[in-house]
């Protein structure tokens, strides 16, 4: 069975017809002028503070000392990169972000797969599962600090006491684990929503075709659903990473970066340098380094989002 190539008109017909008129330079400018105020505002609000930070990062300035502001080239950067606490903060941030993202993606996929099935009360369950994401981060942190982690009346220890374990002083004994636990609770709904959107965009006929082809549930998930979800999971990982790198509320309210340096992450480190040590120059340099790192992640995120629209169509 072969289709004669003449009748197969679809293969060649894909190219879009070229625009017949190209607007002149003046026309193009006219079209864009109304966008100018928004552009200026965006630049002022986002780029000026960044430029300010870059400016400070090249100057020596401590608010406790009244000396003149001095241009010091890369001295601040050298100090920061040589600072053991900064390196700890980088490491902690990586650990916190990676564990939270991994756990919340894994849980998010599992919950999304469950929610994708029809069952009684699904919409109620879905709403309940989303709520952690709707709680203000600061409120969530306080809630966990007191209601969950408290060694005396916290719920976690109460649960453990039921099986005869504990009591554990979560925040001082397992500080990083506690923060990861709380952040995972908060971020799982976000991952779940992204993956659920992916699951629901899957063609039901493709799944039926797999059934007729004799694929069992697990094989279908691994060979058909998971490849389809890949882009969505990547998107979740990248967006999640960008936000979780910036975690401040939980650290500030639950551990203050401690005990010792155990949960000191980059935002909290910068905060301490600025508002506890008043080292404006050094914290600005740290800020610039973090921004540079985040921009690299964001570029990947944008590329993934664009691919998402290109991939299937």
């Amino acid at each position: 069975m072969s289709a004669p190539p003449v009748v197969d008109g679809r293969a060649g017909g894909a190219a879009a017809p070229a625009r017949s008129t190209t607007p002149t330079a003046v026309e193009r400018l006219k079209r864009r002028i109304p966008l100018l105020p928004a552009l200026v505002l965006t630049i002022v609000l986002t780029q000026v503070p960044l430029l300010g930070t870059v400016y400070y990062s090249f100057h020596s300035r401590n608010l406790l000392r009244g000396d003149a502001i001095e241009f010091v080239w890369f001295a601040n950067y050298a100090d920061i990169l040589g600072d053991e606490h900064f390196r700890t903060a980088v490491l902690n941030t990586v650990v916190l972000t990676a564990s939270t993202v991994t756990l919340s993606i894994a849980l998010g996929v599992a919950l999304a797969v469950l929610l994708d099935k029809a069952f009684l009360g699904r919409s109620v369950v879905r709403t309940l599962l989303i709520t952690p994401f709707l709680v203000m981060p600061a409120v969530a942190a306080l809630l966990w600090k007191h209601a969950m982690f408290d060694p005396v009346y916290g719920l976690l220890n109460w649960f453990l006491s039921l099986v005869g374990v504990g009591p554990i002083d979560w925040i001082s004994e397992l500080p990083m684990f506690s923060i990861v636990l709380m952040m995972t609770w908060q971020w799982t709904p976000f991952m779940m929503l992204i993956v659920l959107a992916g699951l629901q965009s899957q063609s039901p006929e493709v799944l039926e075709a797999a059934k007729v082809d004799g694929a069992r549930a697990f094989a279908t998930f691994r060979r058909i659903t998971l490849p389809h979800l890949r882009r969505f999971i990547e998107l979740g990982i990248l967006l999640g990473s960008i936000f979780i790198v910036q975690t401040f509320d939980a650290i500030f309210l639950i551990t203050q970066g401690g005990p010792g340096q155990a949960t000191m992450n980059l935002p909290y480190f910068i905060y301490q340098r600025t508002f506890r040590a008043f080292e404006v120059g050094e914290s600005a340099a740290a800020g610039v380094i973090v921004v540079a790192g985040t921009i690299v992640i964001a570029i990947f995120a944008l590329r993934v989002i664009l691919n998402l629209f290109r991939e299937e169509g």
Binding site: E208, K211, V212, R223
Partner: peptide
């Protein structure tokens, strides 16, 4: 479905993308 030994062609073709 997988144990009936029938093959189906769908209207949308349902190819594995």
């Amino acid at each position: 479905p997988g144990r009936r030994d029938v093959a189906m062609v769908f209207q949308s073709y349902a190819l594995y993308p």
